[in-house]
Design a protein around this nucleic acid. Structure first.
Length: 819
DNA sequence: TATGGCTGCCTTTTT
DNA sequence: GGCAGCCATA
């Protein structure tokens, strides 16, 4: 991503002071400089959107290195995604060259995996532990819920999973939670049992789930202070980005790392454990805690649902007394128009410190608003506008489309394909979520970590080998009787008491696993060649019969599955190229921790499509924010959650502030949700934007007006008057739109205001129309049907009106009649 | 044991 | 409109 700070300062204010980091300060404003150069135990950088925080962070690291205040190995920088980590590393490298080698720049999860791999043996795991993604843990929890017949008490796998996750993020375990829970409630007791079983199963499988990676590292540090000391001595400068999105476990981890080493470790014999408090830090710098820099913006906190605790940032000064706070408010990204919209929106959140982004680049283009008849109509607008911008010289790669939920990407994708707009979906149905990829990875896990029973069970009958429930149970029973693992039981096919055909199948599977193991995990002393993972995977997929089964299948989807597996093989090759010493476990770790935002091959001339959450931290010349509707943004489910609507508003704010030059806000009047067409209402957030900032190409009133008062949702009169009908006007499409936000409007009023559904929804489902028919529309008058597209509830009539010109109408709801 | 058809639920957002 | 899980059947 380009550096938002253009180093233009020629006559710098501190010329030739001879600081070794002089050049790093070029072009920075005063607070940015301070954020780079401040030295002290704790620093909080409150960085508004687009205020150049990444630049400040990288320069701060570069400055520490350049001035020799730190060795690279003493720096630990935590980012939110692997992609952000990669970019930060690259930028630091640009500033200081190869000196950057040896820094830890990674996500919380990657850093914890590195620590856990080294220390796993301290507490009952082995180096070769594997990582359960949410699908894996859901499968395990599902089994446990079933075993405990817990569904009878209203415990669903999903609810159990999310509760366990929340508890782990609070550093609770089954035992500690059980002490405080109301154990007379059978559902609670059951939950605690399942939680405990789940944890034991993970341990037995030598596996951690996502939340464990953090929580168990904290546990490790607390239980084994001498282990923690190793890392406390090593990391002298800890920097955390996106601090507003850290949860309690992550907070605790940072807290553990920044404590002074206890000094009890053997290699510090002179301290005797007593010098911690009286040793002067200068004389013995290793005894003080690491310096901590955190960067964040509470207005961009959008992960509360996953346990992020905004208090981590709002109470930073309390947690780290004497902490320095630097505020970055000048924005280097967006036009004033975009910032004014953003400021106005976020100003409606009441529990925040007031902070106003500003810029000196000028007002720029107005925000473009558009209301489609349907989500397809909306998508068509986006596609058309993308093409217009492209012709005006904006790169496809400089444009992005955001939406609240992944499912919204479908309509956009359809239209983009039809309109031949190159696009790329970030996230969505992930490559690694596909069944065949998970199967292939399960084969690899079965080799890397045979203790992982879930993985072995997964591949047991893939491809079909005639091994069903009965045989699976027989294997498990045999393993239990003999006191061996499920995996090892496979080596004793003849002893299982199953038929000869099935014995043979099991023996074959075992042989394939053994062969692959020999390739990927050679006996000690030998080193696996870089091609080991690729070769092993080919053996597993080939000799197991997995690929053959797909190839002879009649299901046309299986062809795509073979291609996906080919791609996975290609991924292993790529991995080997980038990591010549990379082991099977390294590969599996990387795969487990990649995220949606990490899709590295961005650029290459396509428009990016992604959820608002994925968009955080990115920026584009032109941004399309779609589906700005009630129940979608803010999402319906958020209404019932404490702080939900405010978090949704922050999400909207994050979306707005991604735009550099152009912002488009769009919505649809109807939206198909699970097959049914439902009427959508404009989002309450729209009216929080001063309406003179928006140029409506087609306003909600244009689309929905049927001469009456029923549908003017945005203009509905408040109970008690206020302002109505016309008046503040100002946009050329009349006054349908958005009165200026009224100060101190009570919250209850807002919800009443925006949510009103039009009096009645017309249903023309059974109206038969064909090209050539004449129709009458309540607003547009008479016209002739050019053609009808779509089916069922989504039939669209393309009509040429005698006076109003061509329009597309959703037949189901349009106020029309056949003549 | 494999398959196919049915039903019901679903959709927030992610490391 | 899609997927997962359940059940009935071969």
């Amino acid at each position: 991503m380009p550096d938002p700070i253009t180093p233009v300062v020629v006559g710098s204010s501190t010329p030739g002071t001879g600081r070794p980091d002089e050049d790093l300060l070029a072009g920075l404003n005063a607070p940015q400089r301070e954020a780079v150069t401040y030295r002290g135990a704790a620093l909080l950088i409150v960085a508004g959107a687009g205020s150049g925080k990444t630049s400040v962070l990288t320069r701060r690291i570069a400055s520490l290195l350049r001035t020799r205040e730190a060795w690279p190995s003493q720096i630990l920088a935590i980012t939110f995604t692997n992609k952000a980590a990669g970019e930060m590393r690259e930028r630091v490298q640009q500033l200081v060259g190869d000196t950057a080698q040896g820094m830890w720049i990674s996500t919380f999860h990657s850093a914890c995996v590195r620590i856990l791999r080294r220390e796993a043996e301290q507490f009952g795991f082995t180096k070769s532990f594997t990582i359960y993604d949410s699908g894996d843990s859901r499968a395990l929890i599902k089994r446990l819920v079933k075993e405990h017949e817990a569904d009878a008490f209203g415990l669903t796998p999903a609810s159990v999973q999310s509760r366990i996750s929340k508890l782990k993020n609070e550093l609770a375990d089954a035992e500690s939670y059980g002490r405080s829970a109301n154990m007379s409630d059978p559902a609670e007791r059951l939950f605690v049992e399942i939680f405990g079983d789940y944890q034991r199963a993970l341990q037995k499988a030598n596996a951690f789930d996502f939340d464990d990676l953090i929580a168990q590292t904290v546990y490790l540090f607390r239980a084994f202070p001498h282990v923690a000391d190793v890392y406390r001595r090593r990391f002298r400068h800890i920097l955390v980005d996106e601090y507003q999105d850290t949860n309690h476990a992550q907070y605790a981890l940072i807290h553990e790392l920044t404590r002074p080493p206890s000094g009890a470790a053997a290699d510090r014999f002179e301290s005797g454990g007593m010098m911690i408090f009286d040793a002067p830090p200068a004389a013995s710098p290793e005894l003080s805690g690491a310096s901590l820099t955190v960067v964040g913006d509470s207005d961009q906190s959008i992960y509360a649902f996953r346990g992020a605790d905004i208090r981590n940032i709002s109470e930073f000064e309390r947690d780290y007394p004497g902490a320095k706070v630097v505020l970055l408010e000048q924005n280097y990204r967006s036009t004033q128009t975009i910032l004014s919209a953003a400021n106005a929106v976020i100003g409606n959140n009441f529990d925040r410190k007031d902070k106003k982004l500003w810029t000196d680049v000028g007002a720029g283009e107005k925000i473009v608003g558009f209301t489609g008849y349907s989500q397809h109509d909306e998508a068509q607008f986006v596609a058309d506008e993308v093409e217009t911008l492209r012709k005006a010289g904006v790169d496809y790669a400089g444009m992005a489309v955001f939406y609240r939920t992944n499912s919204q990407s479908r309509a956009l994708e359809e239209i983009f394909i039809r309109s031949a707009v190159p696009y790329k979906i970030m996230g969505g149905t992930k490559f690694y979520d596909r069944a065949e990829i998970k199967d292939a990875l399960a084969y690899l896990v079965a080799v890397a970590n045979p203790a992982d029973e879930l993985a072995v069970r997964r591949i047991l009958n893939k491809p079909r080998r005639g091994i069903g429930d009965v045989t699976e149970t027989a294997i498990a029973r045999f393993a239990a009787e003999e006191g061996i693992s499920f995996r090892d039981a496979l080596a004793n096919a003849s002893a299982l008491g199953v038929g000869p055909k099935i014995q043979k199948a099991i023996a074959h599977l075992d042989a394939v696993l053994v062969e692959a193991t020999a390739i990927m995990l050679p006996a000690s002393g030998e080193v696996a060649p870089p091609t080991a993972v690729t070769d092993g995977l080919n053996v597993l997929l080939g000799k197991s019969g997995y690929l053959d089964a797909l190839r002879i299948s009649k299901d046309p989807q299986d062809e795509a599955r073979v291609e996906n597996l080919d791609e996975l093989v290609a991924v292993t090759r790529e991995f080997a190229r980038n990591n010549p010493d990379g082991t099977l476990l390294d590969f599996l770790t990387e795969v487990a921790l990649v995220s949606d935002a990490d899709d590295l091959d961005d650029a290459t001339g396509s428009v990016s499509l992604m959820t608002l959450h994925t968009a955080k931290g990115l920026e584009y010349d032109a941004v399309f924010l779609t589906g700005v509707e009630e129940d979608l943004l803010p999402h319906r489910i958020s209404a019932g959650e404490p702080g939900g609507p405010q978090e949704e508003r922050r999400l909207f704010y994050v979306g707005i502030t991604r735009a550099r030059k152009r912002l488009h806000l769009s919505l649809a009047m109807t939206r198909a949700q699970f097959g049914e067409v439902t009427v959508a209402m404009p989002s309450r957030f729209l009216q929080e934007i001063p309406h003179d900032l928006i140029d409506w190409r087609q306003s909600p009133g244009d689309v929905n007006s049927r001469g009456g008062m029923q549908s003017r949702a945005l203009n509905a009169r408040r109970p008690g008057g206020g302002f109505g009908g016309s008046g503040s006007g100002g946009n050329r499409y009349g006054d349908e739109l958005v009165p200026l936000p009224q100060r101190d409007r009570p919250a209850s009023d807002i919800s009443k205001f925006a949510n009103r559904i039009p009096a009645k929804v017309r249903d023309n489902s059974d109206l038969e129309l064909a090209a050539g028919d004449r129709i009458r529309h309540e607003d547009f008058g008479e016209g002739r049907v050019d053609m009808v597209t779509g089916e069922g509830a989504k039939r669209i009539a393309h009509v040429r009106f005698d006076s109003a010109g061509p329009k597309k109408l959703l037949i189901k709801i349009a106020p029309i009649s056949k003549l």
